[in-house]
Simulated scan of single mutants.
Amino acid sequence: MKIMNLCVLVLLSVLLAGCSSSPPPLKDDTTVNAEQYLLGAGDTVNINVANQPDLTMRVVLDNSGAINYPYIGNLVLKGKTASQVDAEITQRLRKGYLLQPMVTVNIAEFRKFYVSGEIENPNGYAYEPGMTVEKAIALGGGFTDRADRKDLSLRKASTGELLKNVDVTHSVHPGDILIIGMGFF
């Protein structure tokens, strides 16, 4: 009888260990708004100087993150906010070119993040400030029938780190890759 009770206890402990809950999803609240957004390769930027059509342009940043801007030459945009670029162009144009330049710099299109795995439309999508895993899934058309809705991983572009079991409220940043796992049942 003691052996039978011991076997039942061992069997129950094995079964309970298999039913243990998975760790809670990783949460994150590091969303980026448009004023804090740092420009990088793949962003499309509009530069407008009032009443100066030769100084108004739309550029897509390459990997160098710099452009050759009329009159002032090399201008690095990568790693700066739109308002920082605005201030720099204004300041540099004042030095011998325009008395009171009225410069506006804005982001026409953010660089992409990517959604792959068991999603209806795996692809790259333009980042939007406040992007979350849930919004990224919606942009990708939602889960496929085979998707494991709890197997959500995120490869961070900034570090290359793979975060597993992320929550749907976790933020997604430009260049990140969201991976939707496949369910087996």
Rank of each mutant, 00 (worst) to 15 (best):
V59W: 01
S116M: 14
D176T: 09
P122F: 05
G181K: 05
M57Y: 02
S13N: 14
F184Q: 15
I179V: 09
D86K: 12
G140P: 00
I119V: 15
S153V: 01
A17C: 12
T104Y: 05
G96N: 06
P25S: 03
T56C: 07
G40L: 05
S13F: 14
R111N: 03
V105C: 01
A138M: 10
I67N: 01
E88C: 00
I89W: 02
S171K: 05
Q100R: 12
D43R: 00
C7V: 15
V10C: 14
P122E: 01
K135H: 06
V14S: 14
S116E: 14
A66I: 08
N33I: 12
H173E: 06
L98I: 09
D54W: 01
G73R: 05
N123S: 15
S13P: 10
N5A: 15
Q84Y: 06
F113E: 04
K135I: 11
N48F: 15
I72A: 07
A66T: 08
N121W: 10
L98G: 00
L75H: 02
M131C: 03
G175W: 06
G73Q: 06
I107K: 01
G181Q: 01
F113G: 00
Q52V: 02
K156H: 11
V49H: 00
F143N: 04
L15E: 10
Q91E: 15
M102Y: 13
Y69N: 02
R58L: 12
I137P: 03
S171T: 13
N48G: 09
N106S: 15
F113W: 02
K164H: 13
A87H: 04
V32K: 08
V10A: 15
